[in-house]
Design a protein around this nucleic acid. Structure first.
Length: 479
DNA sequence: GCCC
DNA sequence: CAGTACG
DNA sequence: GGGCCGTTACTG
């Protein structure tokens, strides 16, 4: 029986669970979990590679110790460390970790104090009222444990995407009626269009999060409320599907949607990157700078990604001749002019910016928008070469007015093969900002032609998503 | 546990 | 506050 | 040797 990568991953996962129950260093536990993920997603057959005597590639998160364990398991089918741990922790106890509300500390208390090793034993203990006597447990916890076990026995674990989407649509409609709600969206694995969905992750923006959470928990299909607070609530529907809601202020919508869409590993990687390159970037902790009067951009200026710009009306960046303004962070402004430039001054908007409004580039009252839309599109050209550009997302140019006057449909500049997405706000049913119009660098004249996306055979509305997929959502098996 |  | 949970 | 995601958020 050949050892598969999945077997190795499962062994590491078990070690992680057992170490956790032994109160081991949480970072050591995490190291095993990371290794399990890396091995589980690896295409290369590790056991076969070892059997053939070929060297193993350097795998992220796997050092000399874990590589030795992989070799041991691949050649002998056993892992001594795992077997040692299994002797130290009663069999079946790791199952208890899967119950909501039960982590390593509580499970340990359960089996050490009550000698509870299995789910049926735990259910009996809960019904007998023995659990509430333990320190750290109360009557409410005990009741929730009993309910969770009863629910879990014989439950479907994950839901098919299309089924989950139906639950989500109904819930989103319900959430829209909550007090003060502006935006609602489905995030998580549903938004990532995974084939199956373990739970629903919904996002809403509203000034009063607690009120929205209360409204959410009153949804008729709710079987149990797991928690409900100022910004978060979790419920279980009658079907057994868990639904998590986040409510954030309107200005956090972009970052929150990013965060709540995940995957978890993707979020962690983003934060690590942000920490290394910038400073203390987080889903809710953007630094904010407000300009109340015109700001003159002098030397070639780069605004770092951890600065969230919010431009008030009448606030204008004046970009001097020959000067480059590069904005890496989020940018908020109304649909009015916020940029002015002279001569060869240029504006680049990239990184964390969610969208670019054409209106930022022209004053009120213009009748031909061609040059300004062109400026907006070129402002999203973030990279110096096509090679580096194709791997990264670029903010779409958002057109907020019903119509624009475009006298000339040819843009100069740009690299052959470059794409610039132009999006209309609120015109599509899938989600805000999905591209409906594309600008593509031409092949003959090295110019850019604007047109309806349907005119381009190789266009695809999900181009941006696909690029991110190729770049890799690491660990995309959660959420 | 891994990695700098 | 510790424990558990979320992506 | 020292950090490892989060000015995380909720519960009891």
């Amino acid at each position: 029986m050949p050892v598969k990568n999945a077997d190795i991953a499962a062994a590491f996962e078990q070690i992680a669970d057992l170490l956790e129950l032994q109160n081991a260093n949480p970072f050591r536990v995490r190291a095993y979990r990371n290794a399990a993920r890396v091995v589980g997603e690896l295409k290369l057959d590790l056991a076969a590679t070892i059997a053939a005597g070929r060297p193993l590639p350097k795998l992220p998160g796997i050092g000399s110790d874990l590589e030795a364990k992989i070799r041991e398991f691949a050649t002998t089918g056993r892992m001594a460390a795992l077997e040692r741990l299994k002797k130290e922790v009663p069999a079946g106890v790791a199952e208890l970790l899967k119950l909501p509300g039960l982590g390593p500390k509580r499970v340990r208390a359960l089996y050490e104090e009550l000698h509870v090793h299995t789910l049926p034993q735990l259910l009996r203990a809960a019904r007998d009222g023995r659990i509430r006597s333990l320190p750290g447990f109360g009557a409410k916890t005990e009741q929730r444990i009993a309910e969770a076990i009863e629910r879990q026995l014989g439950q479907v674990k994950r839901f098919k995407l299309a089924i989950a989407a139906q639950y989500a649509d109904a819930l989103l409609a319900h959430l829209k009626r909550a007090p003060g709600v502006v935006e609602v969206a489905a995030a998580g694995s549903l938004r990532r269009a995974k084939e199956t969905v373990g739970d629903l992750d919904l996002l809403a923006t509203a000034p009063d999060g607690a009120a929205v959470c209360r409204h959410f928990t009153q949804y008729p299909d709710v079987a149990e409320v797991l928690q409900s607070g100022e910004t978060r609530a979790s419920v279980v529907l009658k079907s057994g599907l868990q639904v998590d809601l986040r409510v954030v202020p309107q200005e956090s919508y972009g970052a929150a949607l990013m965060y709540f869409t995940g995957s978890k590993a993707h979020n962690i990687r983003l934060r690590r990157l942000a920490q290394a390159v910038f400073t203390n970037e987080s889903a809710s902790g953007w630094q904010q700078v407000t300009f109340a009067s015109p700001v003159a951009v002098t030397a070639n200026t780069t605004i770092p990604a951890n600065v969230h710009l919010k431009v008030l009306q009448n606030g204008i960046f004046q970009v001097a001749d020959g000067v480059k303004l590069i904005i890496n962070g989020p940018l908020e402004a109304g649909p009015h002019q916020i940029f002015s430039w002279s001569g060869s001054g240029a504006i680049f908007i990239r990184g964390n910016c969610k969208e670019v409004l054409a209106e930022w580039f022209y004053p009120e009252g213009v009748t031909d928008h061609t040059d300004y839309i062109k400026k907006a599109v070129l402002a999203t050209k973030q990279f110096d070469s096509y090679e580096s550009a194709k791997d990264y997302w670029r903010p779409p140019v958002i057109l907020t007015k019903p119509s624009y006057t475009i006298a000339n449909l040819t843009f100069g500049g740009g690299w052959t093969g470059d794409y610039y997405a132009i999006s209309l706000v609120g015109r599509l049913s899938n989600h805000r900002g999905a591209p409906v119009l594309w600008v593509k660098a031409g092949s003959g004249n090295n110019g850019i032609v604007v047109g309806d996306g349907t005119n381009f055979q190789d266009n695809n509305l999900f181009e941006n998503l696909r690029i991110q997929k190729v770049g890799g959502y690491p660990g995309d098996n959660t959420g």
